[in-house]
Nucleic acid binder design. Structure first.
Lengths: 202, 202
DNA sequence: CCGCATGTGTCAGGGCCTGACAGATATGGC
DNA sequence: GCCATATCTGTCAGGCCCTGACACATGCGG
């Protein structure tokens, strides 16, 4: 058993990530060309040189090719939030965490491909649904941390829930309108403007 | 052809609604007992005395039994919003529209059954997803009306989007926490408290 | 060279959903 | 009461998504 010999990602994992990336590339091309619902899993698999069964060994569901790995990125956002100073206003911390996430995407050069993916996403019902589920997962991951930051005024649970959901709505709107327009407006910019509309004016 | 002889709902429609109600009743019982994913469409159909094919003639998808008819209720909410005075603050109009919707549910005596349905809903991934899609539909229906109410400050589109999404998030939180607790807290009360946390403090 | 873990293909099957067809039922006109 | 029509229903066939089970291949360590 190789166990964790030394370096971070094992060879297996590198290979696995590479195959995932290849599948994603092929699939997004097909989706952009024909539409998500008009492409079958077997067609993606064939284009990527594998069987349909193997496709499902990399992606539990067809939607996951577009939506990505909510759990993984959710942990990133959660950790980013946790790393913020404890006396910072929650809205600021949330904004910073989301922007860190956006920066993570940009770093991978996924931005351009991300726009293609986003357009596919907003144009397909089952994808929108899966994406909204992702947000709910993030919400459940962020909720306890946000609640811990709020003053205990007897309504903390509800307030935390609202803040988390509202900020996620901002994130969603930012991504959606970003994918919608053709100019070079930044997601971060849209996100900041969105936050500014909701956060307490104080 | 009967056309529209006179009275509102034709006999066909009454029958159709009755069958739908019967299916809903049977299905919710099964879901509450075994869980949504552990009940097949054929089992629901058998319990309701019909074939699986016929079930799908009343509900396009299994999830629709729990989620209901988003289009229909969305129109109700939209119309309720449109009926509000044009000089009322949008947040007030939205709150009033949602409360009218809640009142509609209560009127049908669906509240108790609604709580059962809500609990099934929040405990099943595919149902949560479908429900969130419903909210997106409502959002698209409300968006133009909300935008028309806002002062044209150059950022109206984004602001309208944010307000709609945030208010829908409030509605979602209100319903979810309502289903979560066992006391007699009203949905309306939760909704008002949620709104109070987001609307401009002015 | 031999075990062992991992990756892959094939096969079979369940579940959701749809189109097509034929039989049953109800509605409205005569 | 009878017929033409529209509607409802069941059955059948099929496609698609996804999963478990099995067998074969590949690569690694001893």
């Amino acid at each position: 058993m190789p166990s964790t010999t030394s370096s971070g990602p094992s060879l297996r994992e590198i290979s696995r990530d590479a195959v995932r990336a290849r599948i994603t590339e092929v699939a997004l091309d097909l989706f952009a060309e024909r539409g998500f619902d008009q492409v079958t899993v077997d067609q993606i698999a064939a284009a990527a040189g594998m069987s349909g069964r193997t496709f499902h060994r990399y992606f539990p569901a067809k939607e996951d090719v577009v939506v990505g790995e909510p759990e993984r990125w959710g942990e990133f956002v959660r950790d980013a939030f946790a790393a913020r100073p404890a006396d910072e206003p929650v809205w600021d911390s949330l904004l910073a965490s989301f922007e860190a996430f956006i920066g993570l995407l940009a770093q991978d050069g996924r931005v351009q491909r991300g726009k293609v993916g986003m357009r596919i996403l907003v144009s397909t019902a089952s994808l929108r649904a899966r994406n909204l589920e992702k947000h709910q997962l993030w919400g459940r991951m962020l909720l306890p941390l946000v609640a811990a930051r709020l003053p205990d005024d007897g309504d903390t649970a509800l307030r935390a829930e609202i803040i988390v959901q509202a900020s996620l709505a901002c994130l969603d709107v930012a991504f959606t309108t970003w994918a919608d327009v053709d100019d070079d407006t930044t997601i971060s910019e849209l996100l900041e403007r969105s936050f500014a509309m909701l956060r307490p004016t104080a």
